[in-house]
Design a protein around this nucleic acid. Structure first.
Lengths: 195, 195
DNA sequence: TCGGATGTCTAGCGGTGCTAGATTCCGTGG
DNA sequence: CCACGGAATCTAGCACCGCTAGACATCCGA
């Protein structure tokens, strides 16, 4: 079975190679530049090889997106142990920095409608992890509010700021002021509720 | 000059016809279905005619988006005079209903990066109007905070909820709970500040 | 060494946004 | 009334897209 093993291993490596190439190409030149021809050229195989690994281009983007969720989850986790600031602020800053420094990756994850299963279906673990980190960040300020709902609102606010900023819809300076304001709103409301 | 006038009028009518056809096609079958060939067929002209009116497909989408901003502005203005609820809530509900009932239009306006000028350049009046309505909705709860910044935060939250909901990222039930929570957060924070 | 399965490639389909050059249309002057 | 000239419009085509059928090569086991 060693031969079979070797083949499977090589196949898995190439699978990852394709995902990495797609992400690199997208991050370097945007998703418009990620065509099956260019991607095939980058991995030094012909186009049909891509289709022996993925059902189509969408599936490749989806794979990149899911990996991206893992990256985001790790960065949020890392931010959790930051000193000198609240968990909510640390998570917010980490989230927005991720969206800003890796816009193509963020785009695949949350902007393009790649319909990754989010509902009751088997949600990828990476997504669970990322959302879990958001929940953990929100928990200290939840007060009497519903934790998951508050997390969704927090996420929505972060996502809105991230995408509108990227689309140049918000004043570039004032980024800090917006962050201050949204954190204040969510936290102060908690204090009020807690009375 | 009457002949020239007639030609210009006909040209303007056809210009609008193209925009309307593009919007209708997008709202009926999504933006992927809006190809220059199908659009040309719908307006009963050949493709090059489109390019005599617009620089390219992007310019057509942009025109649809700008008109969409006008529609949104009017609906927000209408919501302003609603009885029995705060201006902020009325605006939020109107905004989210617009995004939900006209997803393709909303997509062109704020999701696809059509780089409509948002900065110091000549911002289309429709955009100014829409943002102005948001400012008016936020004003009653601004407290000591900066009005424009708070409006940006409010808009971001609405935009995040709208897009994540559309992408099936949020629990479909709980929509009301999220709205309640975000309005509470923004308003209660104001009360706290006001003390 | 050969047969067959597995893996990969070449070549092509119908579609896309966009455009050069041919063609048709129409107001105007003779 | 006709023929002309310029403007408006169309036909046909480019290079590219996602995707795939069928030819070809390659390698394992007998």
């Amino acid at each position: 079975m060693t031969i079979q093993n070797r083949r499977e291993r090589e196949r898995a490596e190439r699978h990852q190679l394709i995902i990495d190439a797609a992400r690199e190409l997208a991050e370097a030149e945007g998703w418009d530049a990620v065509t099956t021809r260019r991607l095939a050229e980058k991995v030094e195989y012909s186009q049909p090889v891509l289709y022996s690994h993925f059902k189509g281009k969408d599936a490749i983007v989806r794979a990149v997106a899911i990996e991206g969720c893992g990256v985001l989850a790790r960065q949020l986790r890392q931010a959790r142990s930051a000193q000198g600031k609240s968990r909510l602020r640390a998570a917010a800053e980490a989230y927005l920095e991720f969206a800003e420094t890796r816009p193509a990756l963020y785009d695949a994850m949350f902007v393009q409608q790649v319909d990754i299963p989010f509902g009751t279906d088997d949600v990828p673990q990476e997504l669970r992890d990322a959302f879990g980190e958001l929940v953990a960040a929100v928990e200290p300020v939840v007060g009497e509010r519903d934790l998951e709902t508050l997390t969704e609102v927090f996420w929505s606010a972060m996502h809105g700021i991230a995408t509108l900023t990227h689309g140049k819809r918000l004043r570039p300076d004032h980024h800090e002021a917006r962050l201050e304001l949204v954190l204040g709103a969510l936290s102060l409301a908690e204090q009020k509720n807690g009375l």
